[in-house]
Simulated scan of single mutants.
Amino acid sequence: MSEQVISKDLWEAIPKENKDAEIISRPSMTYWQDAWRRLKKNKLSMVGLLFIVFMVLTAIVGPYVISHDYSTQELTLANIPPSMEIYQVDEDTYFYMHSEYKLFDVTKDGVLVEKIKEIENDMTNRRRVYNIDGNEVVLDYSYAVKKAEDNPEGIKFKLLLNGEEIKPFDKVHNKTYVFGTDALGRDMLARVIYGARISLLIALVATLVNFFIGVLYGGISGYFGGQVDNVMMRIVDIINVIPLLLYVILLSVIIGSGLKSIIIALGSVYWVGMARIVRGQVLSLKEQEYVLSARTIGASSMRIMIRHLIPNAMGPIIVSMAMLIPSAIFTEAFLSFIGLGVSAPLASWGTLANDALGGLRSYPYQLFVPSIAISLTMLAFNFLGDGLRDALDPRLRK
């Protein structure tokens, strides 16, 4: 039998687009790997995530690193600002004059040493005299009460060194108290770090409550539906109608105000929003084919809900938790601000803001520091929540 010869003319070159059709353009990824890849492309979300990690590490390690305690009072060093204008006496001697007309011995770099005791205090003429390393320093603050026509330049005080007026030598940062001190001489940095611990605890409580109560409650309501869903959602409506502030006030009357009453109040009512979200997700997912297949092979309702429905709804659940955490942190700060939160000497960002109101005009930094901490934390969680929403949405996969 003769062999059949196939002519070369019968062959045709494959087009380049068909040749490259089978090439894998990127490695195969799971759903969560792809979500992490997309999240890393969102710069604001990564900034928020890094700030949250930084805050967690600071709250855990910070109290062991800084040299001051959050509750230790140094009344002689009260209301010291983060930056100071220092005056020079000689080459090695400097002092800082407080807005309350008190003098403090400081170094050239801004390290507080001690309060300088006056040798003469003439309150009638508003004049104080100090002896600093053999030099006479006179503080004349009588200008502050003079009339405008007698003090056209608006001078508040004059400092005289050995009879000659001196001006500020330099403005330095406070190396002893980086964020300054409060009205009782407590370190603001230590108290802000401790306030971060309170906020992280509230965030942890909100996360656990939303996950274990809200997810399970909403999952059961959405899966069984019918009369069960109707009754469970009416309970949610009743709980949702009563304001959180009323819960906290009632708990404060029963068990006293403090962090414990806030945690119980959040644990009682903060899961209702998550329950609604999970219920909606489960209502749409329970009609899918894989749920019918699980029922066919005899899987129990609890197994279907825990192993199939809730894992497939984890995207919206995680996004919702990331969005609800800053709301819980702000709620705690607000309750502490109005006096229903943690009690002294415990420090919370809300209590720090409340304590700063009395001296807002004279010491605005005492309000700015906790306010900035609250704002940055809420922005960080919101940025992360926005990034998670985009990263976990399968419709945006590329």
Rank of each mutant, 00 (worst) to 15 (best):
N42A: 07
Y194S: 04
V111E: 13
Y365K: 05
F337Y: 15
E22C: 05
A78H: 07
T176Y: 03
M321Q: 07
T181K: 11
E289T: 09
I132K: 11
K146C: 01
V205G: 02
G273Q: 08
I116Q: 00
E164D: 14
A13D: 13
L201N: 09
Y270E: 06
L57T: 08
I155K: 15
Q4G: 03
D187A: 05
E164N: 13
H308C: 03
S252A: 14
Q227W: 15
P326Y: 01
V231Q: 07
K286P: 00
N312R: 02
A353P: 00
N79R: 12
A21G: 00
D150E: 15
E120I: 03
I119T: 14
L250D: 03
K158F: 13
W271D: 08
D92A: 10
V272I: 11
D390Y: 09
N174P: 07
N135R: 11
I249W: 09
E120Q: 14
L259Y: 10
N79A: 09
V228H: 05
M378T: 14
I329W: 02
I329H: 02
G350F: 04
T331I: 11
F169K: 11
S45E: 08
E3S: 12
N240R: 04
Q73A: 12
A59S: 11
I310F: 07
L376Q: 05
D140N: 15
G154Y: 13
Y290P: 00
W36E: 07
P243T: 07
K108Q: 12
P152A: 12
V56L: 15
K16E: 14
S199G: 12
V65S: 02
N42E: 12
T351F: 08
I249A: 10
A190R: 06
F95M: 10
I297K: 03
F211C: 00
V231C: 04
E100D: 15
I119Q: 12
Y194P: 00
K175S: 09
Y247T: 00
A328H: 00
N42V: 05
D170H: 11
F54G: 11
L161N: 03
K108D: 09
Y217E: 01
G110H: 07
R127V: 10
L159V: 15
N131L: 12
E149S: 13
S261K: 03
D140M: 01
S284Y: 01
Y365M: 03
F51D: 04
F212N: 00
Q33R: 10
A190S: 15
S7D: 14
A322Y: 06
I6Q: 14
Y96K: 04
G258K: 04
P394F: 04
F381I: 02
